[in-house]
Amino acid sequence: MAIIKRIGFWALVTVIVAQAVFPFYYAVLTSFESGQAIFDINYLPKVIEFVNYRKAFDDGVFGRQILNSVFVAAVVVALSLFLAVTASFALARIPFRGRGIILLLILSVSMFPQIAVLSGLFAMVRAMGLFNSLWSLVFSYMIFTLPFTVWVLTTFMRKLPTEIEEAAIMDGARPMTIIRRVFLPLLWPAMVTTGLLAFIHAWNEFLFALTFLSTDTQRTVPVAIALISGASEFEIPWGSIMAASVIVTLPLVALVLVFQRKIISGLTAGAVKG
């Protein structure tokens, strides 16, 4: 009985891991192959070539497009965190009428499907003269990054002991000093976690990036990859697409690895008193 239980358990683990990892593994595998080899089905690497990786950078704009993505994601994260920390300080710490309503309003912003707000946003982007500018993405991505950064940080900030803030008030610290010197250091884990989620979201976003940007040099990577085309309209260059996909995944993997400890403590924060 015990053995059957164990086998069942590990079988389940295998299925889950395979389901999670296989798509990316297959992309890595394909990215190392070229020519006809791509269309042979194999689950272990047969050849390892870097032709596709070289080709991805050959046309010259891919590097630029990665930088576009980095710029948009970084600015979105920085702005979101700055606004979210200051907003959550007010929402968590300063009693005022309508606090609950504001929190709900913020949450409800994230409730609309992207496609539902797309045309309205497009009109706004045009009106502000941001069409085909990376700032249009910065502007529109905050629509979904801000609600959850504000919510997570507000919840987190509520859990910080009031007495610490009061001690700082007695010490003569002004609100901005309290945020900067007392709360920020305590909020790091939560900020890393939410910042990373915001980064991933901004990095992967497709629909707005496709709609608001029109030239190759302005595009961000998800759209750029989708628009990679072959020599003729009958050829889909799977090798290059997979290589590009792997390249843009690596920064995310690296970020998660670097911050994993903070992420874990951010996710479990509040469970154990510091």
Binding site: P161, E163, I164, E166, A167, A168, M170, V182, L186
Partner: peptide, 12 residues
């Protein structure tokens, strides 16, 4: 100046 029940030291 005030001394709090939970000490309220800045943990970091």
């Amino acid at each position: 100046a005030m001394v709090f029940q939970s000490y309220a030291l800045y943990p970091h």
